[in-house]
């Protein structure tokens, strides 16, 4: 199981960096979807099945659809894109930065081994996802409802072509 998690972490990192570094926006969006899918696998491996399903369907699916439609709406010629935004040039320092940060973080981690927090007081007895989500987190569910309604208003307010 550890080995699978390590492989997934590596793939997640690669997908994330590709999403940032790739020159073509379409490929970036696909790399982002890949990162979401791999994150869903990690979630599944850590025992959170429902969150994994959500990540896979909503983030890897819906967000990608949104991005791809936005990209197709604003399609620019490939050469123009490269010349106009100079992404390759402006992003070229990223690998070096990531390597430095990575080395520093690993050194810190090696010096001070990760301390697991002390035993958590058993404040909540229920550890059943269904009960926690629908009963203990009702405020959040109402919050979600309001967020989605606001999202609907957003679509009405921002996406209409002509008034």
């Amino acid at each position: 199981m550890e080995a699978v998690i390590y492989i997934c972490l590596g793939l997640l990192f690669i997908c994330g960096v590709l999403a940032v570094m790739l020159r073509s926006l379409l490929k970036s969006a696909i790399a982002l979807a890949g990162a979401s899918a791999i994150l869903a696998i990690i979630m599944y491996l850590l025992g959170s099945v429902w969150a994994g399903i959500f990540e896979l369907s909503v983030c890897a699916g819906l967000v990608t659809v949104i991005f791809v439609s936005a990209i197709s709406l604003s399609n620019t010629d490939k050469q123009d894109l490269a010349k106009l935004y100079e992404d390759a040039k402006r992003m070229s320092a990223l690998p070096a930065i990531l390597i430095i940060c990575g080395v520093v973080l690993i050194l810190i981690a090696a010096k001070t081994p990760f301390m697991l927090p002390a035993a958590v007081p058993a404040a909540e007895t229920a550890d059943n996802f269904r009960e926690i989500f629908w009963n203990h987190r009702q405020v959040d569910i109402w919050g979600q409802v309001i967020v989605v309604l606001t999202g609907a208003l957003t679509v009405v307010a921002l996406f209409k072509e002509r008034e």
């Binding site: 959170s48 959500f54 949104i66 987190r137 921002l158």
Partner: peptide, 30 residues
């Protein structure tokens, strides 16, 4: 900390919010 069920509930909410924020951002960009 062994509270994976609570963490799942958090993450589902976060994902819903993330999508709506992405919709708003893309709307502004368009």
């Amino acid at each position: 900390n062994g509270k994976i069920a609570l963490a799942q509930a958090f993450v589902i909410t976060v994902i819903v919010i993330e999508v709506v924020v992405a919709v708003v951002a893309v709307g502004l960009a368009i």
